[in-house]
Design a binder for these strands. Structure first.
Lengths: 404, 404
DNA sequence: TAATAAGTTCGGTAACAGAACGAACTAAAA
DNA sequence: TTTTAGTTCGTTCTGTTACCGAACTTATTA
């Protein structure tokens, strides 16, 4: 890439790249038709892109009348990004290449020592994931890390991250960037999940959506018009603080959140113990439900009622076209079906409710989407507003499970 | 404007227009410095714009060393738009010109016959507002109409519009467009209010905000990242259906909305009657409050509690940087101050809460913002994404009250 | 008159469109 | 099977638009 190509050239280049990324192997003549640019311009740009190693010839067309055309495709391993999902118990890492494939994924239990150890672990997993796909590490351009809590992009710290010790004071972003040698983007894991589902999950194509994660806590990732809603203080989607469930004016609600107290793990377990006298963990309560335990049924019904109200609250405020439930509790069909039945009773217009399609991988996929968008922007659109390359639809992406 | 100017020229033209719109009378040399384009290019574009009648010479600079510069400004009456606020009781219309001034405003009681009569009334008021400013009617390019309820852009109808009869079946958009002879945009009045406050109101410059209107009903206009949140079915901000206040699972809540029943006009009056036995209208209840009526105090306190919870719900979901209250009830300081006191008790992080600055005019101003943005886009940016002209800040806009 | 800034004129270059043309391929006629 | 017509691909060439930068002219202040 030269010093400063003219704005119109950058625009054309973007259109060409978008055509190639989206339409797989494609001839120059087709690109010309699709973009409206002249054949001559396309040839010029293609020559440049091939010289710089971003695209390559891939074959020729045959079978139809007329001269056969040379087809071009992205060089998948010309560049790649890493995506990491840092959970309280597990760390997942994957590589996504320039052709928007999400490649082999590596998983490990989170290093319990926390702090710098976890950062080194993430860096190591990124390298391992790259090795697994025979991608030379130097091709990596950036890493996206999904973390619980609210990351502060400037200071690189992560506020409200109860699961990993030491991340509230350490500059996670800079430290990891140092270890990896590339730019690092931190993002809330639920936000990434929303982006992932929007890209190739159960809400693909719907630009107004909500992803609700219910597990240790309750939180949502929201998209409006295809853009993530971050909020003024990066605190959008903090459903735990919705003012119902318990009395929001109780002092305790300022700590844990009125709704969080009754819909998340702790609340469910407490309620079950109150009713039955027995201590069970959440999977245990779901097992009891299957076995016909009346207390479990009651707890689940109550929880579903609160979740339905949370969904109603989101619908009243942002009116998404689809709502996805996820997280260890939110992805249980027993809960989803109850919520589905209750929603029409507390909200006037019908709401499409679905379970997360990508399951535990959703944040990884979302991170890949974020990383690839950034990658395309920096490599090809040259910072020109309105010249973004949209990610190709689901069909080109496949997930490869790596043996551990 | 020629057939199809090259994309780079369109871009440059936009930058030049933006500089002139924002920086008032400005010399070509200054534009060159600001935009980074060469002096030669600016002269060329300025010549073109002057020929087409969009800008004109306005004077020369003096006082500093060097040759004096010719300054240019927008020709304000080269084009204009009309903006109408259609309320249940009043219709307001105003004209906004190309230099982003909102000019004289005309008000009338809404024609009670409804339907086509109201449409003719709006058309007449637009013409009157133009006449008042000696703007020839032919210069008008489009009209923006703020309406209660949810307008359907395609069919031109307005769903849920209880205040004007016949608007749920009539193609309001097409009919008014026919009467006026220009394109018409319909928009929810609360959404326009949010846009108005964002442009030159109490949240100017804050890109994540909520405008809550409390009056006959309760509704919100939301902006995220400077963009309006419309929602999948144009139903974002329907706060009346937030699932608290009354039991959201009651059948009645599907009709009127659990929260609407206790925070809007009817709910407040009902509650006051329950407590005191006396029937009063809302202004009367506020008067009683001033007079120290204990029942009025209790009703207002309860209402403020519900409003605080509604604000908390919005903050939990979209986390705006500022929240504005408006509408006949929402703009009463007695209520705003109570809500301000209650918010820290039910939401953990501090929330900036303000009253609407533009009062009854807020929708008119919002409509002007929408219309002018469209006008600039169609006239100068030629449909190129990322080449939008942002509206100039508040200082250039003044409101002129027209004698009725 | 010197310094400075505004604005114009004059090459030179990048980017693109469109026409013309050669190359490669298919299918149907000889 | 060979030839030929028709079709599409891709390149070359030419002309236009848009831009920049340097040199130059003009106007103004000190």
């Amino acid at each position: 890439m030269n010093e400063a190509p003219r704005i119109s050239r950058q625009f054309s280049l973007c259109m060409v790249m978008e055509a190639i990324v989206h339409c797989g192997p494609i001839s120059r003549a087709s690109i010309a038709k699709q973009t409206g640019l002249s054949k001559q311009t396309i040839s010029e740009i293609a020559r440049q892109l091939e010289e710089d190693g971003w695209i390559r010839e891939t074959g020729r067309t045959t079978g139809h009348v007329g001269r056969s055309a040379v087809t071009y495709e992205i060089v998948p391993d010309a560049a790649c990004i890493a995506t990491v999902d840092l959970g309280g118990t597990k760390v997942r890492a994957a590589i996504a290449d320039l052709s928007c494939q999400v490649l082999a994924e590596v998983t490990e239990p989170t290093d319990e020592r926390g702090g710098i150890h976890v950062i080194r672990q993430m860096a190591r997993l990124c390298r391992e994931a790259a090795d697994l796909n025979n991608i030379t590490y130097e091709k990596m351009r950036m890493a996206v890390v999904g973390v619980p809590g609210a990351p502060d992009q400037e200071k690189g710290r992560i506020a409200m991250s109860p699961n990993v010790t030491g991340f509230d004071t350490l500059d996670v972003r800079a430290t990891l960037a140092g270890e990896l040698g590339v730019e690092v983007i931190l993002e809330n894991d639920v936000n990434l999940a929303a982006i992932g589902e929007h890209w190739i999950g159960s809400v693909a194509g719907v630009d107004d959506l909500a992803y609700i994660a219910i597990g240790t806590g309750i939180g949502a990732g929201l998209m409006v018009g295809g853009e993530l809603v971050r909020g003024f203080g990066n605190a959008a989607g903090e459903l735990g603080f919705l003012p119902f469930g318990t009395d929001p004016f109780e002092a305790e609600s300022l700590q844990v959140g009125a709704l969080e107290r009754v819909t998340a793990t702790v609340g469910i377990r407490r309620r079950y113990k109150e009713l039955s006298g027995t201590e069970l963990d959440v999977p245990g309560i779901f097992d009891a439900l299957q076995a016909g335990d009346a207390h479990a049924v009651q707890v689940l019904d109550e929880t579903a009622r609160y979740v339905a109200r949370a969904v109603a609250a989101i619908c009243a405020i942002t009116n998404p076209g689809k709502v996805v439930l996820g997280g260890s509790i939110g992805s249980r069909m027993e809960l989803v079906e109850r919520v589905r039945d209750l929603l029409p009773l507390c909200f006037p217009s019908p709401v499409e409710l679905d379970v997360s399609e990508l399951g535990a991988r959703v944040a990884i996929v979302g991170g890949a989407a974020v990383g690839l968008t950034h990658l395309h922007a920096t490599l090809f659109s040259g910072g020109i507003p309105g010249a973004e390359i949209t990610l190709p639809p689901a069909r080109v992406v496949k997930l490869v499970e790596a043996a551990q």
